[in-house]
Each structure stands twice: as structure tokens, then as C-alpha cells.
Design a protein around this nucleic acid. Structure first.
Lengths: 229, 229
DNA sequence: TATAAATGACTGACTAGTCAGTCATAAATA
DNA sequence: TATTTATGACTGACTAGTCAGTCATTTATA
């Protein structure tokens, strides 16, 4: 319990976050104040996402984040320790929920063709067509300069995704639905999704790219590779 | 002639670049001065590549570039109009040569299995294991904030690569070596390469990724998809 | 060839502007 | 009233780009 406090004090504002999260303090639900406080925090995160994905981390001015969130700049520092902290919590908040979604798909017993379709659909609907696309783009573009964030993302998100996808592929290979080699590189399955995210940011205006069609084509090609045997 | 002067004044230093490039001025090869000048320019580009890929565009200080190139800061402005210009010329110089290489591979008449192997090999040797990897990473990470550079890259490099790869795939499909669908998305073939570049910058220290093996596996899977029919 | 004049590459101190983070003060709430 | 939350003017550190002056190299002249 003491530990909980220490941890959150490190990542966010000194005391408040801890208090808010531990707000199940025996009696009395979230007071009006606490609710308002959570709203503020969320408003800041929303504004930050907007600015960061439009301008990148370095070029984003906290003055602009504050303006967009309709608060004063100083208020940001009541909720986040500094600019980098804000960035990190933004990524955490947006990407952590994906893990469960993927693991759920993996839990289904069904032919790979079905699971793969679901994964593609999930990716398009829950990532590509949402702000999460921008967060992943931020991870790609800024991650290198924030080793801590890259580590967090790998440990808390990516490794779980890789593991889940690998498990799916292994089972499918055992059933002869794909080559076992694919399970060695789960990244291959996701690669077109990543490419689509990068492409959409850079080249869509010259040559639009249909993510869903590309990913479906890719999956079909990979699956076809074992129809033979 | 007057035109030449105007054009180069736009992209690089006011006058010098034009003079240097048009240095076939009738008689007398490159004088000592001109040779030295070209060396300087290259030294700046080398230093800039180093700094930009280590810190990103925004965070790179031209003071540091100058220090690394062992010149004074002001000298940079004799060779490049500004920081962004330097960045753009760096990308141009490094990536333009790739086009020819790829087109050469495409010109070979051989089974797709052979061409694909060559392409993978070429990518690993000429891109992934060289500084070009860093330049492509820069393109990915910074391109969004420099629409002009993204456009240049698309027009002068990427579109040619896509076209060349697509041609290869179409021919192969006609011969029944792969599904014709692959030619609709040449990006699929290159996707693992891109993923490897991103991965190597962010997660290699947690889980190294064997690019060559991954790309070879991918190609095998895609090719296997038509062995059947 | 020897000397003087012209060139232009190079320097680095300086300017003008930016922005993350602070803190004294004010407003809101209990 | 006492305490918590919010404000935004302010500071200090930082850096892209400038420019007046230096000096090595080249060209013109005697």
C-alpha cells in the first residue's frame, strides 16, 4: 500500500494521482471534486494527444496543450510531473487496453482463417480507425528518444501481443493450417498493419492505401501456403 | 544559364552549388579549392547524418554538427540554406542511388524465387547494414513534419521502387509463381523490412530480430502460396 | 619571377526568439 | 475561515541564423 503511493508519485503528480486511484477509500464514492479532477486530467490527455500527434513531442508547446484543454499552463503540472511524464501516461492509457482484446481473440478455438480475420478486423476498427493509430505512430516516431517509454511499451504491451499471436500461430501450425515457420516471426503477420500506419502519415495523399484489403490479402497468401501439404 | 543560377540558389547555398556542379567549365578540372569545397560539403553531410540519426531533427544542434565536421557553425550556411535544407539534401544524397539498384534487379529474367532472394539480399546489405537504414528511419520518424521531403521521397524514390517491385510481381504472377493479388500490394513484400528497421531502433535490446531470416521466411511463405495451383 | 590586389571561404560572437517549468497570487471549495 | 486548486506572468536556459572581420589562395601586374 505504501508502495502504491510511491510508484504513482513517481510517474505522475506527487500526490494526487495516488489519491485519485485509491479513491475507493473505504466509504464515500468519488466526490464532486475528485470527479472534476479526473475530467481535467482526461482533458489534458486528450489535448496532448491532439498536439503531440500533429507536431511531435519536441515541437509541441505545453502552452498549446493548455489552451486546447482550456486550462492554464500551470495546471498541467498539477497533474503531470513534466512534459515527458505526460507523454508516457498518454501512451500507457491508450495502449494498455489493447492487450486484453488480443488475448481474448487468442482464447477462441477456431480455424486460423477465422482468428486471423478477427485480428485484422480488430486492428482496423480498434486501432487504425481510432486515435490509437496516432499513439502507435508516436511510439514509432518518438520511441527511440525515450528508452524508458520504449521499454514500458515492450514489456507491458508488445511482448504480450507477440506472445498471444505466436500462440495462435503455433496452434494453427500444429493443425497444419500454416507453415510452422510463421510462428518464429509473428511480426510478419502484423507487418502490413505497421506499414499502413507509417504510409498513412506520409504518402496517403499521393497514393491512398486500403489497409483492410492489404491485410486480408496478406493473410490469404500466408494461409494458402499450407493448403497444399 | 541565368536559370541554373536561380534554381540552385533555392535549394542549397546561393551560388556555390551551381558553380561546383557546373564545374565542367570548359577548361581546367576541379581546382584545389573546388575539391576542398566538395570535401567540406561531404563532411557536413556525414556529421549531420550522425547527429540527426542519434537525436532526431529537432533535437540536433547545428553547433554539434559543426563540431563533428570540425568547422565553424557559420560554414554550414555557406553550403546549405538552413537546417531543413541540410536535412533534405542528406536524404536526397543517400536514397536516390537505391532506385537504380532495384530497377537492375527487376531487369533480370529469372524465377521470382531468385529475384526475391536478390531483393532481400540487396535490402539487407545495401540498406539494413548501412547508414541508409538510419536515413530511412529518419524518413519514417520525421517525414510527417516535412511534407516537402515526404513528397520528394515519394516522387523520386518510393514510387519507382513500388513500380519496379510491382512489375516483378506481375510477371511472376503471369507465370503462376505467386498469386496475382500480391501485385496489388507490393508494400506487403517490403513490410517486414520496414518493421525490422523500426524494431531495431526500439526493441532490439529486449528481443533481437534476425531481419534476413524473417524476410526469407516471409518470401518463402508467399511463394509457397502458388505451388499448389 | 616577385609583388600587389582581389577573391571568397571561413570564423565565432552576437541577436532575437522560443519554451519548459516556477511561484506568488487568486479563485473555489469545504 | 482554512485549505485545496487554478492561474498566467515570469525566468533562465537554449539555439537557429547572421554578419563583420580575418586570412589563405588565386589572379593580375611589373
Amino acid at each position: 500500500m505504501a508502495a502504491r503511493r510511491t510508484v504513482s508519485a513517481k510517474t505522475a503528480s506527487p500526490e494526487k494521482a495516488a489519491r485519485l486511484r485509491a479513491s475507493a477509500k473505504a466509504r464515500s464514492g468519488p466526490t464532486a471534486r475528485e470527479a472534476r479532477s479526473l475530467e481535467r486530467r482526461q482533458a489534458i490527455l486528450d489535448a496532448a494527444l491532439e498536439e503531440f500527434s500533429a507536431r511531435g513531442f519536441e515541437a509541441t508547446r505545453l502552452d498549446d496543450v493548455a489552451k486546447r484543454a482550456k486550462i492554464a499552463k500551470g495546471t498541467i503540472y498539477l497533474y503531470f510531473r513534466d512534459k515527458e511524464s505526460l507523454f508516457q501516461e498518454l501512451i500507457r492509457d491508450m495502449l494498455t487496453p489493447i492487450i486484453g482484446t488480443i488475448q481474448n481473440v487468442g482464447a477462441i478455438e477456431a480455424p486460423l482463417a477465422v482468428l486471423a480475420d478477427r485480428l485484422v478486423d480488430m486492428f482496423v476498427r480498434e486501432v487504425f480507425e481510432t486515435r490509437r493509430k496516432d499513439v502507435i505512430r508516436l511510439m514509432i516516431t518518438e520511441g527511440r528518444r525515450f528508452p524508458k517509454i520504449a521499454e514500458f511499451y515492450y514489456r507491458e504491451v508488445l511482448s504480450h501481443i507477440i506472445a498471444a499471436v505466436r500462440a495462435i500461430l503455433r496452434r494453427a501450425a500444429a493443425r497444419g493450417e500454416v507453415s510452422a515457420a510463421l510462428a518464429d516471426f509473428p511480426q510478419i503477420l502484423v507487418a502490413p498493419g505497421l506499414v499502413a500506419i507509417v504510409w498513412s502519415g506520409l504518402f496517403d495523399r499521393f497514393e491512398p492505401l486500403d489497409v483492410r484489403a492489404m491485410m486480408k490479402t496478406h493473410v490469404e497468401l500466408l494461409l494458402a501456403s499450407r493448403k497444399a501439404s
